[in-house]
Write a protein that binds this DNA or RNA. Structure first.
Lengths: 199, 199
DNA sequence: TTATTAACTGACCGGTCGACCAGTTAACTG
DNA sequence: CAGTTAACTGGTCGACCGGTCAGTTAATAA
């Protein structure tokens, strides 16, 4: 039987990273102090420097953690067999929407990096958008989508709407007459998919 | 002829507010110090406290400045005579898009407040959305738009897409195959308007 | 001209920031 | 077992934070 270890650098590292991730998502880079992260993760401030070097490096690590999950899930989705009919394309949108709903931290971290002007995660998205645009192009060639619009713009519209829905929740949450996540998604898909139908 | 005044409190106030606005838009509330604002506006830090009381109050004043412009322009737009045909509705979207393009600071300040969880400017938007939804409802009743979707969702989709386009510019700016502002707007309107056509 | 008000200054406050470092201790290696 | 490495601690650094205050100066009202 393994005796309980007094030291576990991997665990320590991940506890720091988890706490940093949570706090950065909540308040952004400038809004969080290393002392806060140290307290929340139950380690000393010096240990953070020991494991990550600086606040900036920790921030980069937190972003990487979030976007690794995002990239992995989306690439897996996009590298499946081409979606042959409208119902499957619709399913792709629904799954993307629910991924964001289940991972609101990713959405917030995206937003923080956007405001920072950080291009790195835009670059990371670039390949996913390329794959998505390929899918749209296939659907256009198959006659499922109209072919007089830029496939990249189709993907962009759909991605941005889903992102902004969750990012702006605190804004539109109080609007009179607005529906639930699912009701909004239904209406958006209705409009979006019909707008993409060939004449 | 007026002799040049040695003191001009109104000018001082507005110079502070302008500098604060610019810096808050750039870096957010937590990312800006009063010393920075003092330096940029050419006044002493104490004067900022004299005119605004605290950093928080200055932040509120900066938000108010941005959103006053936004609200005024949009209300004016929405209180015109009801838009009777598709071309006019399309024109409303185009004007909104270009307003955001011409006032990127407003978009960024919206984004900062969203991440802060500030509901006040969501509330401010609420009335505009109500007016917009009324317009959509009128178009539905006139048979210009399909009537099987929630009018609030129509407005929300359109507002969010325009907002996110400019907010996420640093992300999608590098994507391969993406078009200019105008090309994206054309495609979005194409999809969105056709998606709203009655069967 | 004088009194009052308010714009404005510079110094200073306690507190927090990220970073650094010398020293300690536990785990690993040969 | 001794020797090396690295995880970990506590204390400290200079810089900067938002805010306060006593004092000065310019505009204004009586």
């Amino acid at each position: 039987m393994n005796e309980p270890q007094h030291r576990d650098p991997d665990l320590t590292r991940s506890r720091i990273l988890d706490a940093a991730f949570e706090l950065f998502v909540e308040k952004g880079f400038a809004g969080v102090s290393l002392r806060e992260i140290a307290q929340q993760s139950g380690v000393t401030k010096s240990l953070i420097h020991h494991h990550f070097g600086s606040k900036n490096a920790l921030w980069e690590a937190a972003k990487e953690k979030a976007f690794a999950l995002y990239t992995e899930v989306q690439r897996e989705e996009l590298e499946q067999a081409p979606l042959a009919d409208q119902a499957l394309l619709k399913g792709g949108i629904v799954r993307y929407f629910h991924f964001l709903k289940d991972n609101p931290q990713v959405v917030r971290l995206f937003a923080w990096t956007q405001l920072e002007g950080d291009q790195s995660c835009g670059d990371m998205n670039a390949e996913l958008v390329r794959l998505g645009a390929d899918r749209v192009r296939q659907a256009q060639q198959a006659g499922i989508f109209r072919d007089d619009v830029n496939p990249v713009h189709v993907v962009t519209t759909f991605v941005m709407t889903c992102m902004q829905w969750f990012e702006a929740r605190c804004h539109h949450g109080q609007w009179q007459g607005i529906g639930s996540d699912e009701e909004f998604l239904d209406d958006f898909i209705e409009i979006f998919m019909r707008g993409l139908e060939p004449r």
